[in-house]
Design a protein around this nucleic acid. Sequence first.
DNA 1: GAAACCTGTATGATCTATGATACAGCTTCG
DNA 2: CGAAGCTGTATCATAGATCATACAGGTTTC
Lengths: 289, 289
Amino acid sequence: MKSAVEPLKARRIYLLLRDRIVAGDLPPGCRLPGEPALAAEHAVSRVTVRRALDLLEKEGLVQRKAGSGTFVHDTRSVRPIVADLSNVLSHLIDMGRSTDVKLLSFGYVAPPEAIAESLGLKPGERVQRSVRVRLIDGEPFSYLTTHVPEWLGLTYSEAELAARPLLELIERSGVKTERATQAINATLAGPEPAAALDLEIGSPLLTLTRVVHDPSGRGVEHLHALYRPDRYSFHMDLVRIGDDGERRWSPALGRPRAPNKTKADKANTDKNNAGEKPTRGSRAIKQRS
Amino acid sequence: MKSAVEPLKARRIYLLLRDRIVAGDLPPGCRLPGEPALAAEHAVSRVTVRRALDLLEKEGLVQRKAGSGTFVHDTRSVRPIVADLSNVLSHLIDMGRSTDVKLLSFGYVAPPEAIAESLGLKPGERVQRSVRVRLIDGEPFSYLTTHVPEWLGLTYSEAELAARPLLELIERSGVKTERATQAINATLAGPEPAAALDLEIGSPLLTLTRVVHDPSGRGVEHLHALYRPDRYSFHMDLVRIGDDGERRWSPALGRPRAPNKTKADKANTDKNNAGEKPTRGSRAIKQRS
DNA sequence: GAAACCTGTATGATCTATGATACAGCTTCG
DNA sequence: CGAAGCTGTATCATAGATCATACAGGTTTC
């Protein structure tokens, strides 16, 4: 008898309440129904309700006050999200800011079939594989797995990879990047990414897969990136251009984001990040991008 | 004693193997280690390993042959993914194709604080709220919650909303859409979206939040969309433009997608999906958009 | 064909999550 | 102050997940 893996009830309640909170159904500051009421409403025991509330509290979505109740935490002011304006293009190259990078793995290996194909490698050609974690203010937010053809990977060292953005190293070698394809998706955190990103196994992750080509069509970089959704998301501002006959949406460049900032690009997610914790990562190295 | 909610072990193994498969570590066709070997490797019982394999099999990632072994299923040919080219802009308005829409909820309500603010509504102003599910080939792939100011929502009927794309109805009313902001993220499926999308609770979902404004700055549409990542993802092709001094990435327009197949453009796994199931949705209505 | 391996299936023991209940301590309100 | 409601905590019973083990039946290899 295969009992279908029914997710834990506490998780069910947690997700239910979480949706109601983020949807605004339970507005910030609002006191949500008491634990006995919730238990009755969802036909579970109060212990289970508490587990769900524990999860919500751990995520900072609610705040509990003994004797008083459980209140929806106002997240608007407490969202130091690493918002990344990806005008679909700029996010590729810039996103400056001082972030730390930890190199988890580095080496030359035979590429998996799918990677070799997407990079257009010849049979037997090897690749440089690296796994890095990016941190902001000491907190990890992305888990990057890159594959680069061996001939290109040999133009820089392991230390350089940990200190400089990969695209910069590629261009420094003389290779011109010309074309790229990206795909954005979602997945669940497996054991390794979860550990690296300081998450529970099974947490949701934003996914970005990118393949960059040079003018001759050779693949020069294959990136598989996993992002913590609570610390990173893709933003874009669009404007309608063209005359009435053929209006189209186009990314809005030069839309000043906060106070000042120049008209075009340049990773202008300023503000925040005033107080900075010292970097505590073991192999963490300061870098731009 | 709060025992930390450690996700089920079977789930852990499942995610672990899934990562190794999609990463190409276990290439398609490969026979993965036997159940006893996996059990020993991860220090769990064989029963638990089987649960993990059950999940993988249900997702079509592996195929089991009694007496022989468990094999990685070649997913490349079995991925009828609704790949959506979002040149970051077009995906807003087009994405033609005949999809079905089910209207789950429709009505006029007082907007949640966050919605009212993002739309720039006056206090007390009401909104039209609708929840729709989009299906392709009878299979649901997106769960859309929209909020529209009441004055605008009254210009079309409930039936029209179920039959036509919302942006089209908005523009038909004479309102000009001028500016939009989007954010893409990831989350877990709560009970309602999970049921509507035919998913397990806790499955990963792609998220798109969009606010559209008219030339005067009024908000005219607030969209919160949830997508099944196995049936939908955001794709974009980029090219490098500008001279050497100031090169930038720009979305590649007019890149024909399906028939020809540019050499290094994966994700467009054609073939497959020749036979089509009839649409069975109850309140399903054919529509473009 | 026989040995070695594999998946499929079943059993009972054990650990964990959940249920039902009770009570202590705090907060709010009249 | 005192009643009512809430969270925090503990107890023991039950249901579900996992474990350890055993065996049946198919596949591969020799």
